[in-house]
Design a protein around this nucleic acid. Sequence first.
DNA 1: TGAAACATGTAATCAGTTACATGATTAC
DNA 2: GTAATCATGTAACTGATTACATGTTTCA
Lengths: 201, 201
Amino acid sequence: MRVLKYAILGLLYRQEYSGYDITSQFKQEIGQFWSAKHSQIYPELRKLVDEGLIEFRTQIQGEKLEKKMYTITDSGRQQLLTWAAQPESLPETEKDEFMLKMYFIHTLSLLEARTLFEDQLRQRRAKLADLQRRYEQLMPVFVSEENKATPSDRAHEHKNGDRLPLQFNNPHLGHYLVLSKALAREQSYVDWLERHVKLFS
Amino acid sequence: MRVLKYAILGLLYRQEYSGYDITSQFKQEIGQFWSAKHSQIYPELRKLVDEGLIEFRTQIQGEKLEKKMYTITDSGRQQLLTWAAQPESLPETEKDEFMLKMYFIHTLSLLEARTLFEDQLRQRRAKLADLQRRYEQLMPVFVSEENKATPSDRAHEHKNGDRLPLQFNNPHLGHYLVLSKALAREQSYVDWLERHVKLFS
DNA sequence: TGAAACATGTAATCAGTTACATGATTAC
DNA sequence: GTAATCATGTAACTGATTACATGTTTCA
């Protein structure tokens, strides 16, 4: 599979990044769906250079701190596109240790089960709230679908800045998709927990 | 973490299984949230025996086919309970290669993106339908919450067989929880895909 | 009698985490 | 000055998959 390879190529498709920058990216929204530690990233970057899919130039930060700025090559771009357009079959398993514990609920006392379940609900609500905050921060980047290309837009174009409607050619579409999907995933988790929490009262 | 260790102990908590049986269990409902290949299971069983957490007896199937039936020990039971009652913090990342591709949507043409997205929708709908079928097969095992302990129940107790209300002490609760959660997860996935498929038309 | 399922293992490889290791820069 | 962050790497280990390897039983 080598998904990390393609995750890195995908990040470098739009701009150059250092290994540290890539590590940072995986702490942002895309980290909801893919991530890696720096100890996996640096050797992978080395490998991609050896394979001719990326290149780097050394840049000096401050007095003497060297950082390597990586860019994608034509060959890398080509391999990225081949992977990205390829449909994959669904994974049989999406691992979730909490749900494994729920399958073994009969091993717990009512109090233990309630504690575990309520803790999960608390954590999932906190994560949901964080994602909602991020979502509300992102949305002003887009012009709403209803307002796009109406005559009145002409009159206050200056208000929109670089805002574009949420459609296929929007350069922020990927960002929006992962954030809205993460939000839907957590909302569904919280809803399910709330529907079942009464089992433990 | 050694989650597989606890997954196996959890399965053996209620009944004895062979390595092959455990492999089969991971192809059932619990496989939605945890699974392992036989090549990981057999060495793990060996390790658990060495650690004194499980034991086995050899049983002859037919003429000469030997299978090892494993049971959990007191020590194994104790370690299982310690793990099961312990709340865990949420994983930062729940990997999803399709969503990684969506983050890189700008690398694709409209047609490629639409093909990928519609393929995912098709696969997720098929999975959802399969889970719904399983859910409808499981539900008759339970007496509905509304009907439980009403005077009329006394009159036709014979109709219920071993059916019990869906509450904490129900021995099938774990099975119900994983199936309803898997269903909620896939329903949420399909809903999200349907909400966004128009972006590619 | 042949295919699918039952049954158990090992070897090689790949993916990913934790720990070890070092040093520079920035902002308070 | 000092703490947080920036910056890059390697080593050891753990977790997981793919491939290799073999043999039996059941059912059509």
